[in-house]
Measured scan of single mutants.
Amino acid sequence: RKEMTAACTPRRRIINLTSVLSLQEEINEQGHEVLREMLHNHSFVGCVNPQWALAQHQTKLYLLNTTKLSEELFYQILIYDFANFGVLRLSEPAPLFDLAMLALDSPESGWTEEDGPKEGLAEYIVEFLKKKAEMLADYFSLEIDEEGNLIGLPLLIDNYVPPLEGLPIFILRLATEVNWDEEKECFESLSKECAMFYSIRKQYISEESTLSGQQSEVPGSIPNSWKWTVEHIVYKALRSHILPPKHFTEDGNILQLANLPDLYKVFERC
């Protein structure tokens, strides 16, 4: 597991931080080997919608929660590849102030007048994250320049770009939802926020969305749709870069829909 690298990086740093090793061990302890084997050997059937997909393993048909699986995938990559990410360069710098204002204007932020003026909160978020810029760049390849612009994001899987519609809320939550006081809790909560931002979430995906850094293989055609990215990038990574937690067998994120021999018997009677 320590050699797990989802995106190509030129050289690998050895990380011996106790906090990170502890988080890696927790993933191992909570892992479910049968689910790992199923995901490793599954045959992708198709997307139901951005949140759900169908896959077959041996004779069984499964309904998989793409949102939760991708979130767990990105969390584990962030923990196992800690401080070893490439950088996704933004085509132009994104001012943190503008991103924070967009987030505060969104109902998702939960902002009320009692929280104070949005401009003041946005300025605080910019200054707060600028103070964390060195650590964010060093460990997470999340790059913020001296003017308070976001200029780079971590490359977690080759050819995958997170849904940038979720970027404003991500920046807001970096400042408000991460435990910045304790090292282990900081790395864990920061990785979880980043994983949620990178995950496939239906509120940020339309039929026209593209999450891939590449064009489709047909010359002159439109960019790959999110469905292509889910199948050929995300579920491909799920084959080798995730140890599913045991609770996925109990919380409805992986559901067995049918045993195909039983279905064949039904059709034979028709």
Rank of each mutant, 00 (worst) to 15 (best):
K2C: 12
A6R: 12
T9M: 10
P10V: 12
P10N: 12
R11T: 13
R11I: 14
I15Q: 09
N16S: 04
N16A: 14
L17P: 07
L17Y: 15
T18W: 15
V20P: 14
S22N: 10
L23W: 15
Q24K: 04
E25M: 09
E25P: 15
I27G: 15
G31R: 09
H32D: 05
E33C: 11
L39T: 12
L39S: 03
H40K: 11
W52H: 10
W52G: 02
A53Y: 11
A55R: 00
Q56W: 03
T59I: 14
L61C: 09
L63G: 11
L64F: 10
T66F: 01
T67E: 06
T67I: 10
K68A: 13
E71D: 07
E72G: 10
E72S: 08
Y75N: 14
I77K: 06
I79Y: 15
F82N: 02
A83T: 11
N84L: 14
F85I: 12
F85K: 05
G86E: 11
R89M: 13
S91R: 08
E92L: 09
A94N: 02
L96V: 13
L96G: 00
D98E: 06
D98F: 13
A103S: 14
L104V: 01
D105I: 04
D105T: 06
S106P: 13
S106D: 11
S106E: 08
W111D: 04
T112V: 05
E113L: 08
E114G: 03
E114K: 02
G116S: 15
K118V: 15
K118M: 15
G120M: 15
A122P: 01
E123D: 07
V126M: 06
K131W: 15
M135F: 02
L142G: 01
D145H: 01
D145R: 01
D145N: 05
D145S: 03
E146I: 06
N149G: 13
L150S: 01
I151K: 03
I151C: 06
L153S: 00
P154K: 00
L155I: 05
L156H: 00
N159Y: 04
Y160L: 05
V161Y: 03
P162S: 00
E165A: 03
P168C: 10
I169W: 15
T176C: 02
T176P: 00
T176H: 01
E177R: 01
V178T: 04
V178W: 01
E182R: 04
E182P: 01
C186R: 02
C186K: 03
E188V: 08
E188I: 12
E193G: 02
Y198V: 00
I200F: 03
R201P: 06
Y204R: 09
S206R: 06
G213L: 08
Q214L: 11
S216A: 06
V218L: 07
G220K: 07
I222G: 05
P223R: 06
N224R: 07
E231N: 14
I233N: 13
I233T: 10
Y235W: 15
K236P: 10
L238T: 11
R239Y: 12
I242D: 15
I242H: 14
F248T: 10
F248G: 12
T249Q: 05
E250K: 04
G252L: 10
N253H: 07
N253M: 06
I254T: 10
N259S: 07
N259R: 09
P261G: 07
P261Y: 14
D262I: 13
Y264V: 05
K265N: 07
K265M: 12
R269C: 14
C270W: 15
C270R: 15
